[in-house]
């Protein structure tokens, strides 16, 4: 397991921390230091609200190593309210039918199943249907 990589990514993974361009106010996620809109340097940290909507999705029945215990599960491209698209698992779905345009909110969850009882636990963002619509 790549411990340094998980450690480096913790801020963006735990809390959707990206960057904002000081020149044109574009929001960047994941952080990449250069604004894709105007090409200026963009290094100011920005915490995303965690709200967005399902842009596209697919259900995984044949999961990669490390995700077997949670299959089947749904992966979506989420369009954040601030603009960027992020790929993430959807969680807490149950009877809820996923559809394009469905509003979702970010939660921090365990990213892979704990089949390895000795390894490091990896946490990060997932999205779920909005819990209380009146708060959005």
């Amino acid at each position: 397991m790549d411990i340094p990589r998980h450690w480096r990514l913790r801020k963006q993974r735990y809390a959707l921390v990206g960057e904002v361009c000081d020149n044109c106010d574009a929001k960047l996620f994941p952080p990449r230091d250069i604004c894709p809109d105007c090409g200026e340097e963009a290094k100011t940290l920005y915490s995303f609200s965690g709200h967005g909507e399902v842009y596209s999705y697919t259900t995984v029945y044949d999961p990669p190593v490390g995700f077997e215990e949670s299959a089947p599960y749904t992966v979506a491209i989420v369009k954040l309210d601030e603009g960027p698209l992020v790929t993430a698992q959807l969680t807490d779905l149950e009877e809820k039918e996923v559809e394009i345009g469905m509003p979702v909110e970010m939660v921090t969850r365990k990213l892979r199943s704990a089949t390895d009882e000795r390894g490091m636990l990896v946490y990060g963002y997932k999205f779920r249907p909005i819990l209380n619509a009146s708060l959005v």
Binding site: D92, T108, K110, L121
Partner: peptide, 13 residues
């Protein structure tokens, strides 16, 4: 708790 939840994730929320 769901499969992806534990005391850390629940405490965070």
């Amino acid at each position: 708790p769901g499969l992806d939840e534990d005391v850390a994730t629940m405490s965070i929320e």
